[in-house]
Design a protein around this nucleic acid. Structure first.
Lengths: 182, 182
DNA sequence: GTCTATATAACGATAGAC
DNA sequence: GTCTATCGTTATATAGAC
């Protein structure tokens, strides 16, 4: 698949799968949006799930980059740890912003996810946990893994709350997080 | 539909929809499990979504009943507020326990949920918020709505974490909640 | 009230031409 | 590398008999 074509396919897949849902989005909708034929897509990706995995893979990198930018704007250890909530709000308002969370949403739709999906889903959870742990260490030292586990729950809760109240930002999540910090 | 038949249909719907996913569960799977024919089901429910709504409706009552039982076991105001986490663990291990959350899962699968689904989904969120607010009032008075909003996020986060780590219980959620209490 | 049989549509994926 | 055309399957929902 040509680079330009692949870009359009991934753009279409990302926008449709993660705002309308994967099962609710037929492959044909992705094809139409990308302006590509069925045969072309299936030459690049052997299955719908492979396309979802590729879209998630690219998205993982975009998300961590947005997170990096938020951390760089912070000026002390505490703000650097809480920057994940700035990143959450910022990333949501990008063109590729999903309805709630592309990764949790995919995990929710696939009970027995094929290996290619499990890999990228686990990778995102690991990334969240690892980066939160690193950012927590200057504040709580050996307590970092425990605090990171709590913050991962708060982040996930903030994302899940978008399903209950689509208009909410991450202010409540940030307040909860601040109560956990020393 | 006869009472016994309806019971079997709802049992099958609940077990399949909320553990395997709604879109991933064809109506035929529900029919086979319930031992009922297609025509019988569609006489009772005009669509698949109507069946989902009916299953969620019954589940809402089961869930609040389980929550009530957990509250009754508590002996002080603090324990009564935190009893929601006992209820979460207890309800999960019942025969109708879902993979993560029947209500959030349904909200995730339906971007534009039909009215019958929106109604029961909003009702469950309202129930959670209202009951948490009531339980928080003896502890924080006028601060109850704000604390309830935070606890609702923690509850939702605990449920969402089941997608990342299927083996986890609500211990981390409880620790976060305790940090929010006076 | 329940069943058997089937209509109808949509989906994921492929064959073969250019 | 991309397209047109289509295959085979599976999905929701209904018609008509008992």
């Amino acid at each position: 698949m040509r680079p330009g074509t692949e870009q359009r396919v991934l753009d279409a897949a990302e926008e449709l799968f993660f705002t309308r849902g994967i099962a609710a989005t037929p492959i044909d909708a992705v094809l139409e949006r990308a302006g590509v034929s069925s045969a072309t897509l299936y030459r690049g990706y052997p299955s719908k799930e492979a396309l979802v995995a590729a879209a998630l893979d690219r998205r993982h990198d975009e998300w961590t980059a947005a997170w990096d930018r938020a951390v760089e704007r912070a000026t002390d250890d505490r703000a650097r740890l809480l920057a994940v909530f700035d990143a959450l709000d910022a990333f949501r308002s990008t063109p590729s912003g999903s309805r709630w969370c592309a990764f949790l949403g995919t995990a929710a739709e696939y009970v027995d996810a094929p290996q290619e999906l499990r890999t990228v889903l686990d990778r995102e959870t690991d990334t969240l946990r690892r980066r939160l742990t690193e950012a927590a260490r200057p504040l709580v030292g050996d307590g970092a893994p425990a605090l990171a586990a709590q913050l991962l729950l708060v982040v996930s809760g903030s994302l899940a709350m978008r399903l209950r109240d689509p208009g909410a930002d991450s202010a409540t999540a940030r307040a909860v997080a601040e109560a956990l910090l020393p």
